[in-house]
């Protein structure tokens, strides 16, 4: 598209050579130049708004607690160990929620690049 030869309307190659004649070759070249896939799951949340990040972290935290409590409730029903499995799994659910939040936050931090010129440590000189 940014080819300087394509000044006239495309597909109107009246001089014998269609401007898109070598398009197949160009596509093949561009595909060969495509960078090999690099797995970077840290991309999540890199381009999303602040409110969306907050909602994402909150939902990850709550989801783990719900799953922990629900799993404990089912185990209690099946095994007849009334409060204990729910108590333990609810606590583990809290831990899993914190784990989820820490992982998501780490992924978000990795995705959002540090602006250049930022000091590595916060400046605590109050001058």
């Amino acid at each position: 598209m940014a080819n300087p030869r394509d000044t006239k309307r495309p597909e109107s190659g009246d001089d014998g050579t269609s401007p898109t004649g070598d398009l197949a070759a160009r596509i093949a070249r561009a595909q060969a130049e495509r960078p090999k896939a690099v797995a970077q799951p840290a991309d999540v949340g890199g381009t999303v708004s602040g409110a969306n990040r907050a909602f994402r972290l909150a939902s990850e935290f709550v989801a783990a607690i719900i799953v922990g409590a629900g799993l404990g409730y089912v185990i209690d029903l099946v095994a007849g160990t009334k409060p204990w499995a729910m108590v333990i799994l609810l606590l583990l659910g809290f831990a899993a929620g914190v784990l989820n939040v820490v992982r998501s936050a780490a992924a978000m931090n990795a995705a959002s690049a540090v602006p250049p010129g930022t000091p590595a440590m916060p400046d605590d000189d109050d001058d």
Binding site: V62, V67, L89, G93, A96, L99, N100
Partner: peptide, 18 residues
Amino acid sequence: VPIEIISFLSRPVSHSLR
């Protein structure tokens, strides 16, 4: 391991909740 399992099981919940 139990924490990781709960964390894994919580994925569809948070995925749909959001």
